[in-house]
Structure formats: C-alpha cells, structure tokens
Amino acid sequence: MNILLTGASRGIGAATLSTLRDAGHRVVGHSTAGSDDLVAADFTNPAAPRGLWETALAELGGRIDVLVNNAGIFEDISDDADDETWHASWGRTLGINLQASADLCRLAIGHFREGASGGRIVNIASRAAYRGDSPRHWHYAASKAGMVGMTKSIARGYASEGILAFAVCPGFVMTGMAEEYLSGRGGEQVLADIPLGRVAEPAEIAEVIRWLASDAPASSTGAVIDVNGASFVR
C-alpha cells in the first residue's frame, strides 16, 4: 500500500516508518525540517498540509491508500501566562496537532472518493483525550480529544464509501519528548500510575498503527485503541 506518514523523524513516527516499510509498504514520511528521506512541511503554515499531500501524491504515483497523522507538539503553558503567550501556545498546539491533521484528513477523503476502493486514516491521539493531562497541558489534551472526535465523525460519515478511520491513544512512550516530561515530573510517580510497570516502546505503538493501516477489519472502523499499560482504561 501507499502511505503518507506525518511526524516521521523520531519516536513513534520513526518506528512506524521502519515498521511499515519492513512490511512492504511504500511510505512517504514527513518532518518539519525534512531530510534526504523525509518531506519537509511546517504545519504552523496553513498551506503546508496541502503542499505535503501534493508532494506525497506525486512521489507515490498518484495514489495514497492510507494517511497516518502522527505529527504533534507537546509544549507547556502556565495558566497565569500573559494573554499573548497563552493564545500563541494554544494556537500552535491546536494548529499543528488538530488543524493540520484535519486538513490532511479532508484531502485524503477527497482523494479516496475518487477511487473505487476507499482508504484508511489512522490518527495518533493520546490517553490525554480521555483522562486529561497536567495543569500546564490543557491545550494538548484538548487537541487530542478533538482528534478522537474527528476520527469518530469520519468513521461514521464515510464508512459506506469504504473510507475507514481509526485512532490510537498512547500513554507515555519512551521517546525524547516523554523522557524530558518524565524527568520533570518524577519518573517514579509516573511509573507508579502504570500497572504494567513501564512506559510503552515506540515499536509497540508502531505495530498497532501497522495493523490498523493494513489488517484491521472494516467493521472496526471508528475504533480507538488504547496503548498505555492500563494506566487508563475505559
């Protein structure tokens, strides 16, 4: 299958890129800065999602079968920040985590409707969508809750056309972003909240994404898969 994967430079994205390619899929990966192997697109620019889509479409010979929205940021903001700083932080987080994903989903749906076989969307959200996050990360939790709601809406709205949508909700994952957060909050306290006793490895999330992108049965469209060591169960 031909797959567009955002946020592929590190962590979950890099593991997913490797897993998908090892499974025989053709994957165009994305990062903000780009590289010899990744297409550059800065999602703070509203035009970037369309530019990325068109580039990926050209590289994949005019057909994309699966969109994986993994790109995201996790920056903190204090509730007593000045208004300008507060609004700027919310704008960046919602713009990158949710709006860019929505733009790509819209482009994917339009493309999938042109073919006879539909397509799949896999959105990487977070357990924060359901259990919330720290007092410094309201905007992150809100962006991920929005992504879950968007995924369910797509699943309900387009299943009859063969367009399937899924979301993945990881907890802490052993990436550079999580390591910084763990050290700031105290690793022992975080681990005590995870019955499994450890945070997830990027390869574990990547395998869930691979399954949803290629093997999950059509009847599971709209599903949200939790991968958090039972730190939050629904």
Rank of each mutant, 00 (worst) to 15 (best):
E180F: 06
E161R: 02
A142N: 02
M174S: 15
T175K: 08
M177L: 14
A165N: 12
P202L: 11
F166S: 05
M147P: 01
L164K: 12
Q189C: 04
G184A: 15
G184V: 12
D193W: 04
E179L: 11
M147L: 14
K144A: 04
G162P: 08
P202F: 04
T151Q: 10
S143F: 00
A167D: 06
P195T: 06
L196H: 10
M174N: 15
Y158V: 10
K152P: 09
F172M: 03
S160C: 06
S143E: 00
G184R: 15
P195W: 02
A178F: 11
P195N: 08
I205N: 01
E180G: 09
I154H: 10
Y181E: 13
S160K: 14
G187K: 15
V173A: 07
S183N: 12
T151R: 13
D193A: 13
E180N: 05
E179C: 00
G184T: 14
V148H: 04
S153G: 15
L182A: 13
E201Y: 12
A159G: 08
R198E: 14
A178D: 07
T175I: 14
A192I: 11
A167I: 04
I194W: 13
L196W: 14
V199Q: 04
P170C: 05
R185L: 04
G171C: 02
A200I: 09
A155W: 12
I194R: 12
V148S: 01
G197I: 05
I205W: 01
A200V: 11
G146R: 01
K144I: 00
A155L: 10
R156D: 11
E204A: 06
G162W: 06
Q189Y: 08
M150K: 06
V190F: 08
V168H: 06
A159H: 11
A165Q: 07
A142D: 00
G184Q: 15
E180P: 00
E188P: 01
A178Q: 09
G197Q: 07
M150E: 07
S160T: 14
F172K: 03
G171R: 00
Y158N: 15
A178T: 15
R156A: 15
G176S: 13
R185S: 02
F172T: 06
K144W: 00
M177A: 08
I154L: 15
G176E: 15
K144T: 05
P202Y: 00
Y181V: 14
Q189G: 10
A203E: 15
C169I: 00
V148P: 05
G186T: 03
L164W: 13
I205P: 02
E188L: 09
Y158Q: 14
